[in-house]
Simulated assay, not measured.
Amino acid sequence: MKPHTFTPGDPKPTGLCIVVPVLDEAQGIEATLKALGPLRQRGARVVVVDGGSQDDTPALARAHADAVIDSPRGRAAQMNAGAALGWGEVLLFLHADTMLPERADEHLMQALARGHAWGRFDVRIAGRPWMLRVVAAMMNLRSRWTGIATGDQALFMRREAYAQVGGFAPQPLMEDIDMSKRLRAVGAPACLRERVITSGRRWEQRGVWRTIFLMWRLRWRYWRGESAHSLAEDYR
């Protein structure tokens, strides 16, 4: 299925569309998508956007999604491709290694009904190191103070707000921070206390403290105006 661009002449999108960008996620994609089954039963549609996986990710995803489409590699490009299908008056962008809380659809719809145009969930990082609990707590606090959300917190927004800010910027890193900054001009985020659970695999693979210092350093450089493309090289 090839994505098309939603235009004002198309039928008005309704309900919730969950966009899941993936790349070589065969090990866990089925569990992530099966957990979305109750939301699909209540009317949500799930779009998996593959960025060129070399494993069985697309094949495994097809049984548990409403669409599996291809896109140029890059989380921002993949999320934009999923949104371009034109499904859903509300968009939720979910990382492939993140599980939503129970009845997440109801929680976010209630937040939007209260007047918010966008928001995110609190996060818990799954893993053995105790420091991951501290990292998650700091992420949640920082997000409340600054109005900046990370992709791990499952960003959601009205399609109108997504269109108003022009979607995700075509950059290889910090696309979530960039999107949050532009959405703040639309309004303050709904900071839901219900928690998504995201994998701590990158923290455990690289080392918790090493990852903390790396992310702090990259965000500082990004705040100072350094290109996301150059930061992506250091991140890799």
Rank of each mutant, 00 (worst) to 15 (best):
L100A: 13
A76E: 02
G127F: 05
T98I: 14
R124L: 11
I125H: 03
A77D: 06
R124G: 01
H95A: 13
A126H: 04
H116C: 05
R124Q: 11
A117I: 00
A96D: 14
G127T: 00
A111G: 09
L85D: 01
M99N: 05
F93V: 07
G127S: 05
P101W: 07
D105A: 13
A96W: 10
V90S: 07
L108T: 12
R103G: 01
A77L: 15
L100C: 11
A111W: 04
A96T: 06
R128G: 00
P129G: 04
A83C: 04
M79I: 11
A126P: 01
M79Y: 01
W87N: 03
Q110I: 08
Q110H: 13
L94P: 10
W118N: 10
D122S: 15
F93K: 03
G86Y: 08
A113W: 08
A81L: 09
H116M: 06
R75H: 12
W118Y: 08
L91K: 07
A111Q: 11
R75A: 13
A117G: 15
Q78I: 02
L112P: 09
G88K: 07
H95F: 02
I125E: 05
R124V: 05
A104T: 11
L112W: 09
L108V: 12
M109T: 14
G74A: 07
G82A: 04
R128C: 00
R120E: 07
R128E: 14
A117V: 00
L91H: 08
A81P: 08
L94G: 10
D122V: 02
N80W: 00
V123N: 03
V123Y: 02
G74D: 10
L92Q: 07
A76K: 03
W118G: 14
L85V: 05
A81Y: 06
L100R: 02
H116E: 08
L92D: 03
R124N: 01
I125F: 02
W118F: 06
A83W: 00
T98M: 07
A96E: 09
L91V: 06
R114A: 12
V123H: 00
H95W: 07
E89C: 04
Q110G: 13
G86H: 04
L85H: 05
E89G: 14
I125R: 04
E89V: 00
A96N: 07
A76I: 09
Q110F: 00
A104G: 10
M99V: 08
R120P: 00
W87L: 11
N80K: 03
L94Q: 14
G88V: 11
F121C: 04
A84W: 01
D122K: 02
A96Q: 12
A96R: 10
R128S: 07
M99Q: 15
T98G: 06
L91T: 03
E102Y: 06
L85P: 01
A111I: 14
R120A: 13
H95P: 00
P129A: 04
H116G: 02
H116Y: 15
R114T: 12
F93M: 14
L92E: 06
R75S: 09
R75T: 13
R120V: 12
P129F: 03
L112M: 12
R75N: 11
F121D: 07
A96V: 03
